[in-house]
Amino acid sequence: MAQVKLSAAGERFFGTNVTPRSFEQWIAFLRLELKKTQRKRITASHNLHSIYLRHNNPDMAEFYARADDCFIDGMPVRRLFELFSSNAGFNHRFTLMDNLPQFLMAAQREKWRIYYLGSTEHVAQKSLERIRREYPNLDMHLHHGYIKDNAAVVDNINKHSPDILLLGMGMPLQERWLLENFEQLEFGWVVQAGATLDYFTGEQAKPPRWLSAAGLGWLYRLAHDPRRLARRYLFEPWWLIAPIYRHWRLQRQENGTPRT
């Protein structure tokens, strides 16, 4: 197996300790971390939507303050990090949406136990059928995100004691649910998953990789789901101008060292 060089240590970036990683570096990071005895840790990700919510939603602010690790999954955030970072060159980004098949393959190879909580019952069932077919040796359990008996869901997660718990209920619901149930849960690492299963099954239109790499994946998604995404893509980035400016001024005052 090829060796993957891990990225540099994280930097404080909009209230979160961010380490820009490639997907391969992230898998290598998880491989090392899951060999340790420490459990119940949070790996987060940042795009413009999450930065907006981090400034406007108390649950999101608490979630990112408690995160043990954070990678970049939005091209605009990668550009911002390049602008503010003192570690030029450590500017990787990836999305679980684009890399879910590779993640499942790695989990099957590493014998990780995976639990996915989120999406609709239809999508969860459709995903399970595909996963059983394409990853027959993967230990993975799924439960839809429309929870009627929360205690039963928590018990089911703990029964399987996943190495990685994926939460796919969308922001900020998935983060709020985690905070409310954190003390009762048993897992290794928890990861934000958003609408990953919806893209995996084709329920939502997934932008081509080359379009995402060019930073235009948002335009593709907006065109296919304007009612749900118009505010996120057309309003929220403008609101972020003031926090970005404050971040820039603070960095200048501290002689180029990025801080929040």
Rank of each mutant, 00 (worst) to 15 (best):
H46D: 03
H46Q: 12
F182V: 00
I51A: 12
G74M: 02
Y233C: 10
R39E: 15
T95D: 00
R228K: 14
D59T: 00
E33Q: 15
V190I: 12
C70S: 14
D198A: 03
T19R: 15
T120E: 06
G217N: 07
F200M: 00
S161C: 12
N99R: 07
P162Y: 14
T95V: 02
P237T: 12
Y245W: 10
R54Q: 13
L222V: 02
V4Q: 03
A44I: 01
P258Q: 10
R66T: 04
H144A: 09
G74H: 02
T43E: 09
V191N: 05
K159L: 15
Y199N: 00
F13N: 04
Q253G: 06
I244K: 08
R252T: 04
R79Y: 11
N87K: 15
D225A: 11
R39Y: 12
G89N: 12
L185N: 10
G89T: 05
A124L: 07
P101F: 04
E121W: 05
G10Q: 08
F103E: 05
E203D: 06
F14D: 05
L185H: 10
Y135R: 04
R113W: 12
V154W: 07
F71E: 02
R66V: 05
S161L: 12
I72T: 01
I27F: 05
R252L: 10
I147N: 04
F84D: 10
A67W: 01
W210L: 06
H160M: 11
L6P: 02
F13C: 04
F94C: 06
K126S: 14
Y233E: 05
L30V: 11
L32D: 14
L96A: 03
S85H: 08
D149K: 09
N91V: 10
N47F: 03
S7Q: 12
A242W: 14
L234W: 13
F182Y: 10
T120C: 08
I164G: 06
L96K: 00
P237W: 11
G74V: 03
A28G: 06
A28E: 11
P226F: 13
L173I: 15
V154H: 06
Y146G: 01
T95C: 00
M97N: 01
L179W: 02
G202N: 05
N99D: 08
F71H: 10
L83N: 02
C70R: 05
L138M: 01
E203W: 04
L219A: 12
L80P: 01
A107M: 09
L48E: 12
R249W: 08
N57Y: 03
Y64R: 02
F14S: 07
P136E: 09
F63C: 06
F63N: 02
Q3G: 11
G217Q: 01
A88K: 15
R246S: 05
D59E: 07
P208E: 09
F187P: 11
D69K: 14
G217W: 00
D69Q: 13
T37Q: 13
L173S: 14
T19D: 11
L167E: 01
N255G: 08
N158D: 13
D155F: 07
P243M: 10
G217F: 00
D68P: 07
T19Y: 12
P237G: 15
A195G: 07
N255R: 13
W177V: 13
N158W: 11
V77L: 04
G194V: 00
H49L: 11
